[in-house]
Design a protein around this nucleic acid. Sequence first.
DNA 1: ATGACATGCAAGTGAATACTTGCCTGTTGC
DNA 2: GCAACAGGCAAGTATTCACTTGCATGTCAT
Lengths: 111, 111
Amino acid sequence: MAEQRRDTDLLFKALADPHRRRLLDLLHAHDGRALSELCEYLDMTRQAVTQHLDLLEAANLVATVRRGREKLHFLNPVPLQEIYERWIAKFEKPRLKALADLKRRLEKANG
Amino acid sequence: MAEQRRDTDLLFKALADPHRRRLLDLLHAHDGRALSELCEYLDMTRQAVTQHLDLLEAANLVATVRRGREKLHFLNPVPLQEIYERWIAKFEKPRLKALADLKRRLEKANG
DNA sequence: ATGACATGCAAGTGAATACTTGCCTGTTGC
DNA sequence: GCAACAGGCAAGTATTCACTTGCATGTCAT
């Protein structure tokens, strides 16, 4: 349970950085990429990219495999599903109504 | 488009902190709460809670209304839906297959 | 009107974050 | 074998973040 909370924390932390979201995008478009290939798309040193990937791996969003001198990166979409199921779905409202509902309640509280 | 990206950034940043997610939970359970009421649930100063709420408001997850000397807080679930639609849904896979797929590809890349 | 309440505003602090530079190790191809 | 390649491992730095303390302002109840 506390474990669950820590996982959630790592997950949201991992997603908090735009460069890391970019990396997920890149892997989504085509995964199994090596570190140096991913580096081509980000304007920072290889070491910085490694650190971002480490966070993504800690959040279980990315899995890696070494092949020869290369480290290949794979996307794991499962934790994103879990975010949705355990975190977003419960806030769900009839979508088109949500904003109108909010507005109505704001006005009611105000007036 | 750049605007869109900044919004996304604020949103994920806002969600990155467990205390802020807690605040969203509290408002989900029952919103229209005043600042001082929300403070009762978090172990930090009122000012710190204000700062968290400010971030949630910047991310458009919380809307506020002043009534007399109180500031009432309302949850806006719409941005969460947008995260799902614009960000999570595209990573979606047949859920039960996703992990198996990943494992298979890792092994293939490895062997 | 005045004291208690609800919040706002601002500057300061410590820790976490996002990088960098520099060097070291293993791998591959010629 | 050896040069070029792919990545690992610190340690250092600068910014951002979460939070505090201290004080000021506006509102309500009696």
